[in-house]
Simulated scan of single mutants.
Amino acid sequence: MRDLRICFVGDSYINGTGDERCLGWIGRLCERRFAWDYRLSFYDLGIRGETTPEIRLRWKQESDVRFQEGADNRVVLQFGMNDIAEVTDKGRQVEEDVSISEAEALVSEVSALYPTLWVGLPPANEACSPMQPSEGLEVSFTQRRGQELNERFKAVAEALSIPYLDLQTPLLANRDYMSSLTRGDKMHCDGTGYAMIANLVDNWSAWDAWFKD
Rank of each mutant, 00 (worst) to 15 (best):
L4T: 03
I6K: 02
F8D: 01
V9M: 11
G16W: 04
T17M: 10
E20Q: 08
C22E: 15
L23M: 12
G24A: 06
W25A: 03
W25V: 09
L29E: 01
L29T: 01
E31Y: 12
R33F: 13
R33H: 11
F34L: 15
A35G: 11
Y38A: 00
L40Q: 05
L45V: 09
I47K: 10
R48P: 09
G49M: 09
G49A: 11
T51W: 07
T51P: 02
I55A: 04
I55C: 07
R56H: 14
R58I: 13
K60T: 07
Q61A: 14
Q61V: 14
S63F: 00
F67S: 00
Q68I: 10
G70S: 08
D72I: 08
N73L: 01
V76D: 03
I84F: 04
I84R: 02
A85E: 01
A85W: 01
E86F: 13
V87Y: 08
D89A: 12
D89Q: 14
D97F: 11
V98D: 06
V98H: 12
V98S: 08
V98K: 10
E102F: 08
V110K: 00
V110A: 01
S111C: 12
A112E: 12
Y114G: 05
P115L: 09
T116P: 04
L117W: 00
V119N: 01
V119P: 01
G120T: 03
N125M: 07
E126R: 10
E126F: 03
C128T: 05
S129W: 04
S129G: 07
P133Q: 08
L137H: 12
V139P: 05
S140M: 10
F141I: 07
F141S: 00
F141E: 07
T142Y: 10
T142Q: 07
Q143H: 15
Q143S: 09
R145K: 11
E151F: 06
E151S: 14
R152G: 11
R152Q: 11
F153N: 02
F153G: 00
A155V: 05
V156D: 06
V156K: 06
V156C: 04
A157E: 04
A157Q: 01
A159T: 04
A159D: 07
I162G: 04
P163S: 03
Y164Q: 00
Y164G: 00
L165T: 01
T169C: 02
L171D: 05
R175Y: 14
Y177F: 14
M178K: 15
S179I: 12
S179L: 14
S180N: 05
R183H: 14
G184C: 03
G184T: 08
K186W: 04
T192S: 10
T192P: 05
G193T: 03
M196H: 03
A198Q: 03
N199E: 15
N199K: 15
L200G: 00
V201E: 09
D202C: 11
N203L: 08
W204C: 03
W204N: 04
W207E: 07
W207F: 11
D208C: 13
D208W: 09
D208K: 15
A209R: 15
F211C: 12
D213V: 14
